[in-house]
Design a binder for these strands. Structure first.
Lengths: 346, 346
DNA sequence: ACAGGTTACTCAAACGTTTTCGTGTTGAAA
DNA sequence: TTTCAACACGAAAACGTTTGAGTAACCTGT
């Protein structure tokens, strides 16, 4: 077992000073050709690699970015991470991941653990609890300490930092328009309680599209599901809720659902009620994940380009980190959505 | 913007030495009650937090573990990470993630980036390319440098380290037995080309179960799909392959598939061919992901307890890191599988 | 009055780098 | 022979922390 070799050891071995070794390895002209060769050969032989931690301490930068997300077992978020990783790797950065599990205190703990020198900046999407509590002190504090933050998807307007968001409003408009174009007249919306602005925006987009086509929005056509219903355990109660929604509104011919699960479950319930898709009911979901692709019928969906979102967030952060001048002009970048048409629409 | 405060600044401000501040904050009895109070009050006021990087350098440990996986947009792997994170957080460790994207060189680059001091140990699942090339120098080298490594799922027997594996063999036996118990007589297997031992083991389990019940294994009943077919783009060609498999073997009444996608696709094809599930064909998949739960009919599947796997891997690694004595006894921990019965079997 | 002991500190080294400044040796020009 | 640049290298500080060793100042008992 040969331990990592340091400059000091090389120096002792070759009977030169540490500085000489350091300079020789950097091909400094201060060092004679002879010594350079010798040092470099030795370093290669012992597979010398500079210690990152020491470099981080010296340079006061770690070349690492911290990512805090509510949940990783989730197509959207893992895709975002994948995008972040890609951009980070190509620019020589590492990614350290913290999960909040939708809990405020976990989010705070995780951020504090990382904010003490471990990373150069944050990319994060806040937890539901944080949105509910509206307690953003951990965010303002880290930003005030001069640590750059990029928020994505679930962003907070009051916080002054770079942001990357999905054009949820426009996505919902597109989806609803599509249904209208396809001849739907009674379009239902399955959404969440709207303290998360993502759900709110999608609802607004849905309403806007109806309005544009002079369709009067029926309050009954909107189902606001309790968020807890999204959890894997609560599938049946979600199904029941959707089933009674369908039974109350028997004549629905289109559904916009704000996520994949709601859409898939709606299709499942429809099948149970012998409603034919897409003939008598067309369905469009959000988030182009595995479920949409593999469902039968496959689901038409609004793609949010999660990977691109991650790349953009990482790009903004790293640009910020590597910018010389300290002008703080924060950007909000909007990722456009695409409608991926599959079998659940005509 | 108030920057992070250091011991040195506190020391200057209070006109004591750095060591006094350090000791005062640690409540050392060397320091008078008076000074302790003063220092601690000041530190609280300025929200002092020790710099992690400096600590890492001093202690020669980072309290960070590196995780290298082939792919993160994947239910199994993200679940494993989730488990790792959970255990890591509870023991005060951070998790830094590297993605190989199934590429050997990415795996090597990522490991080298992290191995130079950034982390205390690795948890990894090797890429397909690495298994193909059988080049493990990066693994042996890091282990030789004294850095602990825990491999999971896709492990390499030649490498001497802690391992966490799924009991794939037994899982396949269970699945196949279940089908046999349910009255299946012609059971097909949809698997991958077997240079990944996971696929190999599952195939062996399938064969073992047949043998135990004196069922002669038909070579035709085994479909070895090219791995590329798993990629999201290649869905149709996978469907075609499975369709012709069904057409050649018209009398199949049971299917064991080595992953979710194959199982779901098999069900999709069956539906197209008007084969009723589970009446005339029963299907069992591997990996209990979202698809299994939400498919119609929902898929009976072999659960691998990915989260538990991550937790165990992290536990092994951290135990190893924190062990005083240097005895190197490596453990291979096997995670048992569970058969989750749903609608695709009787 | 003084050894010995306590108290409350400070010093300095160490972790592994990089980099600025200094310095001894050479060789050449004057 | 003197002077001065060029050359090749070393010393030391710095990043922020911990910690063992060192040291004043004071107190106590004889």
């Amino acid at each position: 077992m040969k331990k990592k070799v340091t400059l000091k050891q090389i120096a002792k071995e070759l009977d030169v000073s540490i500085s000489t070794v350091s300079k020789a390895l950097k091909n400094s002209i201060e060092i004679s050709e002879d010594t350079r060769q010798k040092v470099q050969a030795f370093a290669k032989l012992y597979n010398y690699r500079p210690n990152n931690i020491a470099l981080s301490l010296k340079n006061r930068k770690t070349k690492t970015i911290g990512v805090i997300i509510p949940e990783i077992v989730h197509h959207f978020f893992s895709k975002v991470i994948s995008g972040i990783e890609k951009e980070a790797l190509s620019r020589g950065y590492n990614v350290i991941v913290g999960l909040s599990n939708e809990s405020f205190s976990n989010e705070v703990i995780n951020m504090e653990m990382l904010a003490n020198g471990s990373i150069d900046g944050f990319i994060l999407s806040v937890s539901k609890e944080t949105m509910l509590l509206q307690d953003y002190h951990h965010l303002t504090e880290t930003i005030n300490q001069g640590m750059p933050v990029v928020m994505f998807d679930r962003v907070i307007n009051e916080i002054n930092c770079d942001k990357v968001i999905v054009d949820d409003f426009e996505g919902a408009v597109k989806a609803t328009n599509k249904l209208i174009e396809n001849g739907c007249e009674k379009i239902g919306l399955i959404t969440t309680k709207d303290y998360i602005n993502v759900g709110k925006l999608r609802t607004q987009g849905y309403l806007k599209a109806l309005e544009d086509h002079q369709i009067f929005p029926e309050a009954d056509f909107i189902l606001k599901v309790d968020d807890e219903k999204l959890s894997e355990e609560n599938l049946e109660s979600l199904e029941k809720e959707i089933e009674s929604f369908f039974k109350v509104n028997k004549n629905l011919d289109g559904i916009v659902a704000v996520n994949e699960i709601y859409a898939i479950t709606a299709m499942k319930v429809a099948r149970k009620l012998k409603i034919k898709i897409p003939e008598s009911l067309q369905v469009i979901g959000f988030t182009d994940g595995v479920l949409s692709k593999h469902a039968v019928p496959s689901l038409t969906t609004v793609s949010q380009h999660a990977s691109q979102m991650g790349e953009k967030a990482a790009e903004l952060l790293i640009n910020n980190l590597e910018r010389e001048d300290e002008e703080e002009v924060y950007e909000t970048f909007t990722i456009q959505t695409d409608l991926i048409e599959r079998e659940s629409t005509k």
